[in-house]
Each structure stands twice: as structure tokens, then as C-alpha cells.
Design a protein around this nucleic acid. Structure first.
Length: 843
DNA sequence: ATAGGGTTAG
């Protein structure tokens, strides 16, 4: 046979234009090869026979010779039988290249020869366009596939697919599947759809998954599972691609797919996307079904108003809401902590039940119980249990768990434990979350010892390891003693003797670490103990450890833990940093607190409201102006970050500043001057403060508060008073009264009068906080000479100065009367105050 | 085919 081939190779002559790299190959790449399939390199090109031009043997006319054709057909068959597929392919190539009708050649080959040849070549990775061409040729011939692929061929294909699946070679697997896509019976034998989809998901190939799923009947179900699986992997992008691909394949919009992608939006935390998808449906004039509506409500359940809107939309569409819709409404109320609305909703559902429209289920009861549990309304929660029992619904683990947390959240540890006991007696299986709730309840009321006893008891009774009877009894006796001390009857202690499997989780350990109070070593031991249950500390564990360590007074230790956290591969988050900052502030280490604050920003961790409020508590702990200035800068950042500063902390900040005004010694002057320029540019407030504190402005006793909020105004006023005090202490006397300009107010527009409250706040500050004498005055400018609507305090001795700030106001294009309200603190009053303070601080 | 419970910083 080799000889025959070599004769063929040497004797054949073909024009160069007809070489195998010609049209067949190229055309084929565009038609059958999938996008995920890169064309495979051909088998070694060196082995390819070179066909010389104008071969007499292979010319079309000669091929017409049936005898010759039959000979090569036979030769090819033999090669396939012998497993010499490369050579087989070579024959086929020359047949194809010669431009002879291939159908005739293929028809003459016995089908199993061909099939095995093709399958073998495919399995060897020779997903060559010629192989595909041959294969296509068979399909076009209409050869019966059942007859074409015998068991041996299919078996080898299956083996190859299994191998590819195992090795995760999705690309080649897809190529093979693409080729056999026309033969459904083969495809179904090749790969288990769930296995294939699993591989597509790990490889993030949503379109491949959908294309494969499409081969099967009931493809929609497979599409949905693909979308959902991507969602579970938090890969919304791929899920959306899969969804869009399924949309293209399916002729009509599939509600199941829609609800699935909406659920996935929720899973991935992109609830806005779920709204877009829903709006897309409406835009297409398609009415979603109940599942789509319920899923949409559920995904958006943290937004009560949106959920209610969707519910109303369902009503206007005349869609019958079911118990799930109502349960989700309840859940939404629960998340929004709207107890009354939840109660109304519950009553509404009960009414519908009495009409026979719906039947309340375990979800309904558990959810309303949770509403009351969260609101610490434990009695109401227990009442719901009565409703539930009357309606014949048996409480399940979740219901019991919610009931227990109702008592736990209200701080009723005894009641919670008794409920837990009832749960055991009712043969409900408690799970770790129930145990955790109880432990947490103990921790919340600082019964740390009790938490440890329960934990120990459950661990010993519930672990698979054999515990010595002594140890077990000791734990039991101790726990019973404690219960009886608390007045709990022994019959209610079955939770101590139960033998349910107990597996603590990381949460359990986190709760127990909180029960360590400030005993750092005990907490550290717990972290080590976690390993015996194959648990690893999470962000929360580390944060608690920082808190415990810092709470014991060991600030540096706490900072060290923060570093270890990073070293152990868990990047400290905003909470870990905030906890560490809290420790520094508590232990009066403001510098460390500010250092951590700078560090977290270096790591691109955005401070949140809690962080800002915590760091602001570091204000002026050392009484230095620097600390105060840092706090002011942080306050400013907080506003820039979009957080509304907490008035309470702000008030504290300003009070501290006042304190500074009263107590600052000469030494502050230098510090003060060096920091003015730093924050001069940061904001309007800081600019103002800086402006008035500049030495060039030293002689001016004038404050323009226009454009400032009342809080900012207070800060500016205090800054100026501080300056006055600094100057006074330095030996410079006050040369003039202090003038303050307040916001412009349009004459007659009562509604806008001191809307910002600046005037009131400043007057209160000066008069009340600083005990200064304040003269209030108003002035009219513009053309209006009418005396109507004169300022509130016109009687006082205020004079309009013609230059300075008033020049600015006359720039205003309006000719309407404008009233500038002014305040004045007399030189005399300031002097008295300074004298008073200087004397008192010397004492 | 839908939903529910426990743990961290002020």
C-alpha cells in the first residue's frame, strides 16, 4: 500500500492553482468552523504530497475512468481500515484537489471506513477543514448517520469528549460538537449537558453554553440554568450574554428566562439592571407574567417605594398577585423597618385568606415574625405564632429561628433559650444560625460566661469526636447549675442534653470572640481553635480581634493585627480601619488615628460615614490647634464625599474650638500660622477662615459671612475671635469694633429671611456661648427710600460704611431694595471678654 | 421556576 502511495505521489502532477490550500479550505473556514474554533494546523505539511502540475493521472478526464476511481477508493478504504488515517486523508486530499466530483468518491467508500477515518482524525486534533469537508460531503450525500457511525466510531468520539471535558479543553470540545451538531443522536451521547455547561461556566463561555443547550429539546430550561449558574458565580456579564444569546435563538420572549436574569441581577447586586430589563419588556409591549413581577419585586425589595409601585402596576394590569407577591411586600416592609405598614399588609393578607383567595404560608409567618423581631416587639412576634398554630402551619427551622431572635433582640436571653427548648421538643432541627442567635443574645447582654458555657456544651455534645463522659458531664452540670441559678426549671434544659450535630461556623467564632470582652489571648485562642473545624477567620474576625486587642489598651498590638490581616491575605476593609481608628481615638492617640486615616486612603479604601464620625472624635484631644485643623479638613472631605456631617459631632467640634479660644497659650501661634496656607484652597469655608487669619488682614475687624452656612459661619466667627485673642495675648490691643455682615435679604421677602439661620446662630454664638455684647442692625441700599419693612433692629447705633463690602453689593443688577443685616461686637465688649478670659485662664 | 433566619466599626 505504501508503494501505491509513493507511486501516486511521484506520478501525480497538478497545476499549482489546484493545490489543497485552495478554495475548499478557505471557503470552509467561513462556513462550518465555529467562532470559538481556531483552524487547527494541518498535519505535518512536510508529509504532504507535492502534486506536480498537469498530471495525466489526476486530470478530470482520466478520473472519469471508473476503474481508476475504484482503485483509489479501495486504497482509501484499506488505509482507513488499517488506521492509517493520515494517508487516507492524503488520498482524499488529492481527490478533492483534482476537482473531481467528490460525492462519487465518497459514495464508493464504505461508510464505516469513512466514519472511523473522520472520527479518528478528529480525535487526533486534526480538525482540519478537509476533514470537515469530507464530513460535510457525507451529510450532503444524505448518508444515514445511524449507519455511518458505528459503535466503534461513536465510542472513540465519546472517549475523546470525556477526555476533553476532563482536561477542560472547551475550545476543542466545542469544535467537535459543532461538527456533529447536525446529528442530534450523536450529540446527546457525547457530553452530559450539565457537565458541558459547568465547563462553559468555569471558562466563562456563555455563548458556547447556549449554542450547546440549543441542540436539546426544551432548550429554554437549559438556558435558564446557564443564566442562573453564571449568576451564582457573580458573573452578571456572562449571564447577560447568555440571556441575550437565548433571546436571539428563541422565537418568542421567554418569561422564564426573563425572571431568571432578573433574579441574577439581584444575586449580583445590580438591581438597577433588573429595572432596565423590565422596562425593556414594557417597551416591547410585552406583559410580564407573575413570576417576572415577583422576581422584580424581590430583587428590588430593599426599595419599598419601587416594590409598591410594581405591586400597583400588577394591580392595574389586572394581574392576580399570589401569596409570594404578598410575602415579598412584607419582606420589603421588613427591610424598610416599616412595622405599621407590615402589620397592615399582614392584615390584608389575612383578609384575603378569609375570602379564600390565598393561603398564608410559612414564609408569610416567618417574615412578619421577623418584622416584630427586628422592632424588638417580641410579644407581637409570639402572637403571630398563635395565628400560625391556629391556621395549621407547622413552624419550621426558620420560623423558630425568627421567634428566638425576637426574644434575643429584645435582650430576653432566658425566653430565647426556653423557645429553643420548645423547638427541640417540637422535633424541629436547630441549625447553626439558631445556636448563633442564642450565643449572640448572651453576648449582647454581656453574659459572656454563659455564652462560653453554652458553646462548650454544644461543642462537646454535638461533635463527632468521642468526648469522655467526665468532660461531658462536667460541662452539662455547670450549665445546669447556671440555669438553675437563673431560676430556669430543669425540665426546660433539654438543650443541654440534646445530641444534635453541632458545627460552629466562622460567625459562631466571631460571636464568641466578642464574648472575650478585652481578653485578647482568649480571642486569639479562638482564632486558633477555628482551624480544628476547618474554618478561617474572615474580615469580621479580624476586626473583632483588633477591637478586643485595642480594648485591652494595647494600641500597638491592634495596629499589628491590622498588618497581620493584610499579610494573611485579607485586605483590611473600611470596617477594620475604622475599628483601628476607633481604638486610637479611644486611647487618646489622635496622631495614630490620623496616620491610619491617611493610610487607608493610600490603599484606596473609601472612608464612610462611620469612619468620618469616628475620626472626628479625635478632635483636639491634645488641645492643639493642629488637631483641630486636621478635623476641619476631614469635615470638609466628608462633605465632598457626599456625607452630611453629623450636627452632633460638628457641635462638638465647634465647642472644642471655643474651648481653644479660651485656653490657647502663646505657643500655638507658630503652629497656627504654618497651617493656614495648607487649607486655604480647600474650600469656601477654609478659604474664608484662612482669609481672616492672614497677617495682612491683621488690622481688619470685619467678617463677611455671605454664602456660608450657619455651621461654617460659626467656624469663621470663632476663627476671627481666636485671632483677636492671639493678638491680644501677643500684646496687640483691639483698635476697632468687630463688624459682621450677614446674608443679603430681599426686602419684603419674609420667607427668605435668615432662611439659613446664619444670623440666629451667630448671635447665639456671640451672645450665649461667648457672652459678648452684640448689636444687631440692618441697612437699606438701592433706590427705595420707603421706610416700610425696616430691619428688625433699626434702633441700634449702626453706621453704614461707604467703602468695603458695600461696594460689592451695589454690583447687584437688581434695583430692588436690599437689606443687609449686620452685627457689631464693640471693641469695649471684646476687650472685657478678653480680659475676663485671660484672668480666668491664669487662675 | 419564585421568597425567609445568625456575626463586624459610630
Amino acid at each position: 500500500m505504501r508503494e501505491a502511495l509513493s507511486i501516486l505521489a511521484s506520478a501525480t502532477v497538478l497545476p499549482p492553482s489546484a493545490t489543497p490550500s485552495g478554495n475548499y479550505r478557505r471557503r470552509h473556514r467561513h462556513s462550518t468552523t465555529s467562532t470559538t474554533t481556531k483552524p487547527r494546523p494541518n498535519h505535518n505539511p512536510k508529509q504532504k504530497p507535492q502534486f506536480p502540475a498537469s498530471s495525466p493521472l489526476l486530470s478530470s478526464s482520466r478520473w472519469a475512468n471508473r476503474q481508476t476511481l475504484a482503485y483509489y477508493t479501495k486504497l482509501a478504504s484499506k488505509l482507513a481500515d488499517d488506521g492509517k488515517f493520515d494517508d487516507f486523508l492524503m488520498i482524499a486530499e488529492s481527490v478533492v484537489a483534482s476537482g473531481v466530483n467528490m460525492s462519487e468518491f465518497l459514495a464508493l467508500l464504505e461508510s464505516e471506513h469513512l466514519a472511523r477515518g473522520i472520527v479518528r482524525l478528529l480525535c487526533d486534533g486534526k480538525l482540519d477543514s478537509l476533514v470537515a469537508t469530507l464530513f460535510n460531503g457525507i451529510q450532503k450525500l444524505g448518508v444515514e448517520p445511524v449507519g455511518l457511525f458505528d459503535e466503534v466510531a461513536i465510542e472513540s468520539l465519546k472517549a475523546e469528549c470525556r477526555r476533553l471535558l476532563k482536561c477542560g479543553e472547551l475550545e476543542r470540545l466545542v469544535s467537535l460538537i459543532e461538527i456533529f451538531a447536525g446529528f442530534q443522536f450523536i450529540i446527546k451521547e457525547l457530553v452530559e449537558p450539565s457537565e458541558f455547561i459547568k465547563l462553559c461556566i468555569t471558562k466563562r463561555e456563555p455563548t458556547a453554553a447556549i449554542r450547546y443547550a440549543h441542540i436539546f429539546p426544551h432548550a429554554e430550561v437549559l438556558f435558564c440554568s446557564i443564566i442562573l449558574e453564571f449568576g451564582k458565580k457573580r458573573d452578571l456579564g456572562s449571564a447577560l450574554k447568555a440571556f441575550e444569546a437565548s433571546e436571539k435563538i428563541l422565537s418568542s420572549p421567554n418569561m422564564h428566562a426573563y425572571r431568571t436574569i432578573i433574579d441574577v441581577c439581584g444575586l449580583c447586586g445590580d438591581y438597577l439592571k433588573s429595572r432596565t430589563i423590565y422596562e425593556g419588556l414594557l417597551a416591547e409591549n410585552i406583559t410580564p407574567n407573575i413570576y417576572v413581577f415577583n422576581s422584580l419585586m424581590n430583587v428590588n425589595s430593599h426599595d419599598l417605594s419601587y416594590t409598591l409601585d410594581i405591586y400597583k402596576k400588577m394591580e392595574t394590569l389586572g394581574m392576580m398577585s399570589d401569596i409570594t407577591s404578598h410575602n415579598i411586600l412584607l419582606k420589603s416592609c421588613c427591610l424598610a423597618a416599616k412595622v405599621e405598614l407590615a402589620q397592615d399588609t399582614y392584615k390584608q393578607i389575612r383578609k384575603l385568606e378569609s375570602k379564600g383567595v390565598l393561603k398564608l404560608d410559612d414564609f408569610t409567618y416567618s417574615t412578619i415574625i421577623k418584622v416584630f423581631a427586628d422592632a424588638k416587639m417580641w410579644k407581637h412576634a409570639l402572637e403571630i405564632r398563635e395565628d400560625m398554630l391556629l391556621s395549621g402551619i407547622i413552624p419550621n427551622t426558620i420560623t423558630w429561628s425568627s421567634l428566638i431572635s425576637a426574644c434575643a433582640n429584645a435582650g430576653l436571653v432566658e425566653k430565647a433559650i426556653i423557645l429553643f427548648d420548645e423547638m427541640l421538643q417540637a422535633d424541629a432541627q436547630p441549625n447553626t444560625q439558631c445556636f448563633n442567635t442564642l450565643l449572640h443574645a448572651c453576648v449582647e447582654v454581656c453574659q459572656f460566661d454563659r455564652a462560653f458555657r453554652l458553646f462548650q456544651c454544644w461543642k462537646e455534645r454535638g461533635s463527632q469526636q468521642t468526648i469522655s463522659g467526665d468532660k461531658l458531664n462536667r460541662a452539662y452540670n455547670e450549665a445546669v447549675d447556671q440555669m438553675s441559678e437563673m431560676g430556669v426549671p430543669l425540665r426546660l434544659c433539654s438543650h443541654l442534653t440534646m445530641r444534635v450535630p453541632y458545627r460552629p461556623t466562622t460567625s459562631t467564632y466571631n460571636i464568641m470572640m466578642k464574648a472575650c470582652g478585652t481578653d485578647y489571648y482568649r480571642a486569639k485562642d479562638l482564632i486558633d481553635e477555628m482551624k480544628t473545624f476547618n474554618l478561617t477567620p474572615n474580615h469580621i474576625s479580624w476586626s473583632i480581634l483588633i477591637d478586643v486587642c485595642g480594648g485591652s489598651g494595647n494600641v500597638l498590638g491592634a495596629l499589628q493585627i491590622l498588618a497581620s490581616m493584610r499579610e494573611s491575605g485579607i485586605q483590611p476593609d473600611v470596617i477594620a480601619y475604622t475599628t483601628a481608628i476607633k481604638i486610637c481615638v479611644k486611647q487618646k492617640k489622635p496622631k495614630l488615628a490620623f496616620k491610619l486615616f491617611a493610610e487607608m486612603k493610600k490603599y484606596q479604601i473609601k472612608p464612610n460615614m462611620v469612619t468620618y464620625n469616628t475620626i472626628l472624635r479625635a478632635r483636639s484631644i491634645d488641645g492643639s490647634l493642629l488637631g483641630l485643623q486636621q478635623c476641619l479638613a476631614i469635615y470638609q472631605q466628608m462633605r465632598k464625599a457626599g456625607y452630611k456631617p453629623n450636627d452632633y459631632h460638628l457641635k462638638q467640634l465647634i465647642e472644642d474650638w471655643c474651648e481653644g479660644v479660651l485656653q490657647t497659650e502663646r505657643r500655638s501661634e507658630r503652629q497656627f500660622a504654618s497651617h493656614i496656607t495648607d487649607f486655604g484652597r480647600q474650600s469656601l469655608l477654609l478659604e474664608k477662615v484662612a482669609e481672616y487669619l492672614q497677617d495682612s488682614n491683621a488690622e481688619s475687624l470685619f467678617i463677611d459671612l455671605r454664602g456660608l452656612t450657619k455651621v461654617e459661619a460659626r467656624i469663621v466667627v470663632l476663627a476671627v475671635i481666636r485671632k483677636i485673642k492671639e493678638k491680644y495675648v501677643a500684646g496687640k490691643s483691639i483698635k476697632d469694633d468687630l463688624s459682621i455682615i450677614l446674608e443679603q435679604q430681599r426686602h419684603g421677602d419674609r420667607a427668605s429671611r435668615d432662611e439659613s439661620g446664619v444670623g440666629e446662630a451667630v448671635i447665639r454664638l456671640l451672645k450665649h456661648d461667648l457672652a459678648l455684647e452684640v448689636i444687631e442692625a440692618g441697612s437699606r441700599t438701592g433706590s427705595d427710600r420707603d421706610n416700610k419693612g425696616s430691619p428688625t433692629n433699626s434702633s441700634l447705633n449702626f453706621e453704614v460704611d461707604e467703602k468695603g463690602s458695600l461696594a460689592e453689593t451695589s454690583e447687584s443688577p437688581t434695583r430692588r431694595p436690599i437689606i443687609l443685616q449686620r452685627l457689631k461686637v464693640t471693641r469695649k465688649s471684646l476687650h472685657q471678654w478678653l480680659h475676663r478670659k485671660t484672668v480666668s485662664s491664669k487662675r
